[in-house]
């Protein structure tokens, strides 16, 4: 394998795809497995530290991790020549690989949409980056929280499909 070969660049994008995926899903699981259950146990006077210091930083790496994951994933699928086959879930292709990676891609794409078009706009209201009344902030926190939970749910079959496609059918 030459260092500058097409295969090397395809591998490079797969590597970057996994790295950025860890950045994204790592933060998603931090929000759901660590932060959300712990915040109610933190004394009131210490809670602003989460919203003012940890949350903005975590959301930055979370949303840009999501963006890097989808961009590198689409490039990788394009370079490997199965982007369209995966988008149409391998229907008519007689390939379980395309179907499996296709389901993974669609689940990941739904999660990416949720991050950028539901969670982030609502979190901007919660953090005061966008003007909102107290009632709106409360509703936004609920919407962002539930959408984050939906993404946690979707991450389980999404990772199954991503890893399963390679493990069983590549």
């Amino acid at each position: 394998m030459e260092l500058v070969s097409y295969e090397w660049w395809a591998f490079c994008f797969r590597w970057l795809h996994v790295l950025s995926g860890i950045m994204w899903i790592g933060h998603l699981w931090y929000f759901n497995f660590t932060q959300a259950p712990t915040v109610p146990k933190i004394p009131m006077e210490l809670r602003p530290a989460i919203g003012k210091f940890i949350l903005p930083e975590a959301l930055f790496w979370f949303r840009w991790g999501a963006m890097a994951t989808i961009v590198t994933g689409l490039i990788l699928a394009g370079m490997n020549g199965y982007l369209l086959n995966a988008i149409k879930l391998g229907i008519g292709d007689h390939s379980r690989y395309y179907t499996t990676i296709g389901f993974g891609m669609w689940l990941g794409a739904i999660m990416w949409f949720n991050v950028w078009f539901i969670i982030w706009p609502n979190q901007q209201k919660v953090m005061g980056l966008v003007q909102a009344s107290d009632d709106e902030k409360k509703a936004s926190a609920r919407t962002a929280g539930l959408t984050s939970r939906i993404n946690t749910l979707l991450s389980i079959p999404m990772v199954y499909c991503m890893v399963g496609a390679m493990h069983f059918y590549a």
Partner: peptide, 30 residues
Amino acid sequence: MKNPLDSLAQTVALGFVLTVVVVILIHAIN
């Protein structure tokens, strides 16, 4: 009725259930 997504354990359990559904769909398609 309480939203199952309010429980982290139920969310994870639903994730595994959805995985089974997806696997069935994959095998149904190809």
